[in-house]
Design a protein around this nucleic acid. Structure first.
Length: 350
DNA sequence: AAACCGGGGTG
DNA sequence: CACCCAGGTTT
């Protein structure tokens, strides 16, 4: 039997019921795809529901302040996705009369839409026969066809795209694309795939050659960078504090945090008081500095471990640029800061 | 081609 | 602890 036919039969019997599977609205499809990038369905689903509730169409999203969008995105990670989402919403709403492009090639010109997402939207919404290649597809194809080319090499990316494109069902590209990803997620899982009940276990080369654990091949990842964060948590008279926006291209761009002193190694109270940031914060005002967590919090990102100490700085003065504890909830913050606030803030302010 | 960008689940 | 997740952009 033809690959696509066998796959489709499996899909119709095993697919999950997901909200974005029951629409062809490009806005909803686009939103779901951006949210799901590098994200498991169980983690992204509640965000999708909140976004569609808050912004039922592209115009509503375009008209929202970026800070509000980032706040809704808080906790999902890869925050450039949220900023690109907002940028593209504005573009579609204001320049394209609310209509998404209806072809792969034009879709790819939009911020945050790469090869995978353009293929997904073009096929799901407009029946264009372009194959999606996500992590699931790499795994399924490398195993069934025994492809050992690294999936994150330039040649591998081209090879797998071409293979998927050869296999796609031109009569129903949308279902084919949904099916191959769902198959990877449910049946041909990364660990302990369900080969016993697999509809391809008679032809799968990885199974035949005992290569299931070896495929797909992936080139090794980069090393972990260790950073040492000291957050100064100001506490002014009248329950007020200070947040600063992170800018530039590093982690958490667009999110807010307390004034930060970053060092190359753990630092004590004496050295901390000596830093420029600290002196700028307190000026000549009276203050009381207390370490909040004796054991550093190690916040782990994909490529960085952030060894973090929070210091409370009680300042016996009013402040002009400060934020009331009550208003902190309106600011998008990294999970690291959110966790601290949940522990530090009195119940009334959450 | 390689680096960078989060947070959480799994075995 | 290593690896993975409906990837994309920048250098």
């Amino acid at each position: 039997m033809v690959f696509s036919k066998r796959l489709k039969q499996w899909y119709l019997q095993n697919k999950r019921d997901l909200p974005w599977r029951s629409t062809q609205d490009p806005y909803k499809i686009w939103l779901s795809e951006i949210i799901m990038q590098q994200t498991r369905v169980e983690q992204g689903l509640p965000y999708y529901l909140r976004f569609t509730e808050a912004y039922p169409n592209v115009h509503a999203l375009a008209d929202a302040p970026e800070q509000e969008v980032l706040k809704l995105w808080q906790g999902l990670g890869y925050y450039s996705r949220a900023r690109n989402l907002h940028t593209t919403a504005i573009r579609v709403s204001k320049e394209l009369e609310g209509n998404f492009p209806d072809h792969y090639k034009e879709l790819k010109t939009l911020k945050g839409i790469g090869d995978y997402t353009a293929s997904a939207i073009a096929s799901f919404c407009f029946n264009e026969p372009v194959a999606v290649v996500d992590g699931n597809v790499y795994r399924v194809l490398s195993r069934i066809f025994g492809v050992e080319t690294p999936i994150n090499s330039t040649s591998g990316i081209k090879e797998f795209k071409a293979l998927a494109q050869e296999l796609i069902d031109h009569k129903d590209p949308a279902t084919f694309n949904q099916a191959i990803m769902e198959f990877g997620a449910i049946q041909c899982k990364p660990q302990n795939p369900l080969c016993d009940t697999c509809p391809f276990n008679d032809v799968c080369l990885a199974l035949k050659n005992n290569q299931i654990k070896e495929l797909p091949v992936k080139i090794k990842k980069t090393k972990i960078r260790h950073r040492y964060f000291n957050y100064l948590v100001p506490h002014f008279r009248g329950e007020q504090t200070i947040l600063e926006e992170r800018t530039g291209k590093g982690i958490w761009s667009g999110l807010y945090q307390f004034p930060l002193v970053e060092t190359n190694k753990p630092v004590g109270e004496a050295e901390l008081i000596d830093t420029e940031n600290f002196q700028e914060l307190v000026g000549d005002q009276n203050f009381e500095l207390d370490i909040y967590n004796e054991n550093e919090v190690v916040h782990k990102l994909s490529h960085q471990h952030l060894h973090t100490t929070f210091w409370t700085v009680n300042i016996d003065a009013e402040s002009l640029e400060s934020i009331n504890f009550n208003d902190l909830k309106d600011y998008p913050v990294p999970v690291l800061i959110e966790n601290f606030l949940n522990e530090f803030l009195p119940e009334d302010y959450k």
